[in-house]
């Protein structure tokens, strides 16, 4: 991994992009790893359970919000561990937007601070379920 941005203090577009590349790669790897652990845990307990996805009944509350997923994943509830991996995956593009916001702040780029803050706000609004 390259030198962290906050240590070098260089916030040029090139440095940010390089850091973003690493962030995305590790984000996907960690998310996939957590998902694999949860999946293995699930399969070892339930085997090839014939799931019924023909009829839609929605997910239980335990798997529907960020806080519930984290709480249940910490208890090694297999579905929640998988869901945590999926949440980490959803978080990677959001982290990328947050990092861009930080870069625009460092560059004193007012227009794009506003633009990026709007995008980040919409993403967090969706993830926290404020509108669900």
């Amino acid at each position: 991994m390259s030198e962290p941005l906050w240590r070098t203090g260089r916030w040029s577009d090139e440095h940010v992009e390089l850091f973003v590349g690493n962030l995305l790669r590790w984000g996907v790897i960690i998310a996939a790893a957590v998902t694999v652990v949860g999946g293995a845990l699930f399969l070892s307990l339930h085997g090839g359970r014939i799931a019924d996805y023909h009829v839609f009944h929605g997910q239980p509350d335990a798997l529907k919000s960020v806080s519930n997923v984290v709480a249940n994943a910490l208890r090694f509830q297999p579905e929640a561990v998988i869901q945590l991996g999926l949440l980490l995956l959803i978080a990677t593009p959001i982290a990328r937007v947050a990092l861009s916001l930080l870069a625009f702040v460092k560059q004193h780029d007012r227009t794009y601070i506003v633009v990026t803050a709007i995008v980040l706000g919409l993403l967090l609004y969706s993830l926290t379920g404020a509108g669900a």
């Binding site: 239980p60 798997l63 919000s65 999926l86 959803i90 937007v97």
Partner: peptide, 22 residues
């Protein structure tokens, strides 16, 4: 980024099944 925006709404609606999605 676009998919992440709608994924949040789908999660809270209970449309994301971990056992199918993984």
């Amino acid at each position: 980024v676009t998919a992440a925006a709608s994924a949040g709404v789908y999660l809270h609606r209970g449309y994301i099944d971990p056992v199918l999605a993984f």
